[in-house]
Design a protein around this nucleic acid. Sequence first.
DNA 1: TAATATATGTTATGTTATAACATTGCAAAT
DNA 2: ATTTGCAATGTTATAACATAACATATATTA
Lengths: 154, 154
Amino acid sequence: MIKKEKSITELNASISRVDEICRSNNLGFTDIRRQVFEIIIKNNKPIKAYEILDEIRNITNKPSHPPTVYRAIDFLIENGFVHKLNSINSFVGCFHPKTHEECYFLICKKCNLYQECCDDSLKDRISKTAVHNKFVISNTTLEIEGHCLDCSQK
Amino acid sequence: MIKKEKSITELNASISRVDEICRSNNLGFTDIRRQVFEIIIKNNKPIKAYEILDEIRNITNKPSHPPTVYRAIDFLIENGFVHKLNSINSFVGCFHPKTHEECYFLICKKCNLYQECCDDSLKDRISKTAVHNKFVISNTTLEIEGHCLDCSQK
DNA sequence: TAATATATGTTATGTTATAACATTGCAAAT
DNA sequence: ATTTGCAATGTTATAACATAACATATATTA
């Protein structure tokens, strides 16, 4: 459920998967891109671009600048490895890249943990709404904010 | 359908409705708030805060500053008279305020026109997803970007 | 090895949004 | 009538988020 943190194993699996996808698609999974991806998925919560920048600076002890981070993020988003949460200007890792186009989210306002919730019934419903309005979808933002079980019990 | 512009009559009706709601709820529908609301709904397309600011400056010929606009927007959003489209940092008027909590949108990337699409089946589906995840919703961002009928035919 | 493409470094700036405090105007309490 | 309190607005400054433009480096391949 939403509060579950990702284990080291899961994180490593996720990194390997992306590595693999990049290799087989001839995408350069460069050091920076890998670092940014790792920072995002290890963070466990949505993370902001400038927070990523701070971490990069800490790790590398070199001057780093916003474009470096934003470029890496762009790459990761383009290839479906991370998603942007528009409602909070933050980024989250995708734990099943390439298995679906759209990704929907539950975001807890209290603990900040999030969960992907990409059920097909939801996708179908959105798709039907679009068809009904003669609308061709290119991308969907669905971000459900509220409180997760743990936080709403407190 | 999505391409339909609002008529003067509809715009006036919308303003009157908000006026009425404010009166009966003891909300100050001040000059600035009214101006910002009118600018937003007359614009017909999602509008950005700084575009609103420019218009205010043109109308009043006085120095105006971002907080003025953002405060008015906050008021209008709090009371359900306008919505923010997080995916494009823009604001749109709501043509049926107080009749539903959540509002979903179709946004055409080509012509920029938008449409509210708040069908109950969609709302139910989202609600079910939340329940299934033991999640209590406080607010939902659903923004479907793509092409409207007219624009996808061209 | 030169030419090309891809990625990154760097500087500067653009865009979006809010904090903090001063001022105004109006309405209720004295 | 005067003070007090409050909601709204004015104003300055800056925070937070994001990209343009150009220089440099690194890798590929002709």
